[in-house]
Amino acid sequence: MSIAEVAQIFELPFMSRALIGLVVLAVAAAIVGLFVNLRDLEFISDGLTHAVFPGLVVGYLVGGTSWILAGALGAALVGAVILTLVDRRRVGSDAGIAVVLASMFSIGVVLISRSDGYVAELEQLLFGRLLTMTDVQLRQIVIVAVLAVVVVGATARLQLFRAFDLRGYRAAGLRDLQVDIALNIAVALIVVAGSQAIGNLMVLALLILPVGTARLVTRKLVGIVPIAVVVAVVTAVVGLVAGFELSVSHGLALSPSAVVVLVMIAVYLVVLLTSQTWLWAARRGARRRADSRAQNQTIGGVPGRTVQGAP
């Protein structure tokens, strides 16, 4: 497939909207996702996707599609504060998060199941409507995503210190509750922004996979977000084109956001495999060199000791 053909696909208004939405989300999610990764907040983020769900439903039931955002924002703020407080309990915080996650999700399902034709609506809320996004929705996504980046950007320095060394952070007289709530609100905003485009459940992949991939490639802080953004944008384009081709040329009806996520996972796995193989080869090389050095030191037929576990 030539570049011209790809460009042609994105000349279709619904495809260009999907691309812009995805790219904006991916960039914002990579920035917020950096701190999710550094703080190991993946499970809380999953909790937040579920906490936002009943908000989506209530918004939808109250005022239809145009009210989804308002409902989701309300649920996001409440969910972010509740999950921050639950997570600060040192013992049993995972159980607490799981309880919040399950109960919020059940409430959402119960609410939506009271409306007619709920299977279609449920599917839309969970998996998004990437190709039927309106201009208004696209604008909402951009605004909410930018808001999430502003919240994390304003606290980025404190987030870094807190993630690295909580004891040192507290001893320095800095407060952690505020930055914890700020980060969870930013994650919740990404979930809200992503819910309408790629769906409530798929948005977690955007937060976690590009940064996870980037951390396999670089160990430098400054490199992580740019690499994650490149990974996210490339996989978004490839996923959209692949989804388009499969459905238009091959007649397969697919969720485009699921295809994008699968491409992201594929890239993550390839990079993981490559980096592990590379590490393994480097270790083996180091061991071989150590062995041969030990052999050279063999005196009077006594074999040299094999050095194990070389870095």
Binding site: A154, L160, G168, A172, G173
Partner: peptide, 21 residues
């Protein structure tokens, strides 16, 4: 595994004075 350099860690000592922004 935390991706910060020694200098970035030492700079954290200034955060209290610098504030967030």
């Amino acid at each position: 595994q935390f991706p910060v350099s020694l200098r970035q860690v030492v700079m954290m000592g200034r955060y209290r004075r610098l504030g967030a922004l």
